[in-house]
Design a protein around this nucleic acid. Structure first.
Lengths: 198, 198, 198, 198
DNA sequence: AATGAATGAGGCTTCATTCAT
DNA sequence: TATGAATGAAGCCTCATTCAT
């Protein structure tokens, strides 16, 4: 029983943290940040309350890591996958693909987005959260602008912001209205509008 | 000798309630619903904690009244005023006015909108709150659809939803990004886009 | 509209008090003393909370009046009525009548007795309540002893106490066990036992 | 380094719980359930309010544990000890012993009995409490009936109920009347009555 | 690394009682 | 006599966080 090496320890630690973050994400998203106790996360994660504070400085710190992780996950599943497909397509097809990907992601990851939006609307005592969200949105603009005009993205910045806003606005309404929101009609109309424009 | 008359009481009571609702709105919007204590509201409102429960059955009840009040206020300041101006204008001018009004309202009533968005993103055990928000959004679609096509609003429903989503999405991004969001550029671009389309 | 005379006022006042006491008795007995608020009593009694404190010094004072009233009522309905019947009967018949009356009263006024017993078991901060209950029980002994031996009641005091205890014990068990307590069997057996003894 | 072993924890935990239950019993019995705050129990027990809720789910849960503990204690001190003595005696001596034991126990454990009686007289939203008391009383009947007629306890059920009622009634009166109740006279008379009967 | 007992502050709510009218 | 607005203390309970082991 030789003691574990430092590297091994680090790996285990990170794996554990990742597991906890996943659990926390699920609980935060399902029940809300305030209604989820550290206790509940620890229990569902199979570790002790005390150990939680070894991994995360505080509940808010955990929240930040959850958000960052969510962002990373969203990036991985949305943009990277997207760009791979887009580069061989016409702009019209690319726009269509972006919209479809976005709608798919927003329905599948509703929990995460709801949580993120909710938190970023009430930030006074958590400036970091706002910073993170701000970065996420800004990066989205850039990617869209770059898609519309790879050579001169700056010139289409306002347009990119409007498109991003439209997409996020659709998500917002869909989340609020729920099942009775005719997402397909809106999606098709949006694709029609934008592909006819660019 | 005689107790205050019922009418007098009612008037005072309603005035007080209105004051408390305003205070609560500000605190909820600034710090979030969960992070705002009844105590804090009472203190800022200059009344005792106990009296709060004379006016509002519970914290959730207070929240509902805050939301309804906000909605009423938004209606009063946005749609009614707007419609009065619009009826003598061309569709293009009307669209321009709507956008300008919306942007103005969303910057001036940031509190309300942030709170509303935040709350409606939370998975709560407060179905009433969801219902209220859902109604508010739905009514907004109808008004926009009616503006675009007063005789056959149904035919432009998807379009109306997209416009509403774009506007709320802009609000969302503006709230998250903050001062560095170039709201004017986005506004002008949006006006240009929409007026050229209808 | 001449002002009401003092006597009239006094009469009205006492009538009101009596009404309130009745209401309080019902609520205390139904929901328990601690779970019944002054507010609830006032509301059900059709008067204001403030006026309650004109009639009764405090909640505890009201409780005392309720208990005294209950006792008076029990006396009126039990002993007086009882004695009238008993004086023309043999001792055996009298004992039978007493038992039957007691059982009847204890089932019909379960509320009051439960409340009285409950309160007299936890008296530290309400010595008056204990005093009242103590008087009630003592008077019951005397009456029973007098019944058994009108000329020399002192000599049957212990026996009288046992009989009183048995009756109250039956009530106690009946209240706790509820519907599944075979009250009739117990009653008949008790009548049999006691009539064969005296 | 290592956390305390599970067994150790369990032992400490149970010991602490037992201590708290004793404290709660005393306070509940002295001041009544409603008038005893969790705070007061925690303070007298030397632990923090918060920890109380680690041991007991709620105040009502604590009450239930107090009642069960009391019952167990009563069983241990009364019936078990009693039966050991009784089996070598005549019925008359056994009855005498039962009565003496009961009187002894009821004076020594006045706290417990007062609390139990008081609680079972209250119309509560705590059906469990009622159930517990009901069971306790029912079990007492059975034991007495078994004592009177071990081969056919059913045939003396009513008699057993009367005896149980008499004993509990004596306790009730003794608790209410207090020091001036001539317990010895009653006890002796009761022994005389019952031993001459069986 | 790991546990969970322990704390204490704070939250929501109720309610007896007082007081201006 | 009559009202009910107003208070403030108190109660139950939750939970993030710390700490001894």
């Amino acid at each position: 029983m030789a003691p574990r090496s430092k590297e091994e320890n680090e790996i285990i630690r990170n794996k554990r943290k990742a597991e906890i973050i996943l659990v926390a994400l699920e609980l935060f998203a399902t029940n809300g940040y305030h209604s989820t106790s550290i206790s509940a996360i620890a229990q569902k994660g199979g570790i002790s309350k005390g150990l939680m504070y070894n991994y995360f400085k505080s509940k808010e710190d955990l929240l930040k890591e959850v958000l960052l992780f969510s962002y990373k996950k969203a990036s991985d599943t949305l943009f990277e996958k997207m760009q791979a497909e887009i580069q061989y397509k016409s702009l019209k097809d690319a726009i269509k693909t972006v919209i479809e990907f976005f709608i798919e992601m927003m329905t599948e990851n509703a929990h995460i987005w709801k949580l993120s939006i909710s938190l970023s609307m009430q930030v006074t005592d958590m400036p970091d959260v706002q910073t993170i969200m701000s970065k996420i949105f800004s990066e989205a603009y850039l990617r869209i602008a770059f898609l519309l005009n790879p050579e001169n993205p700056k010139t289409v910045e306002a347009e990119a912001r409007i498109i991003a806003a439209t997409l996020d606005g659709i998500a917002l309404h869909y989340y609020v209205i729920g099942a009775s929101y005719d997402l397909d009609a809106v999606k098709n109309k949006l694709i029609e509008d934008l592909t006819s424009k660019f």
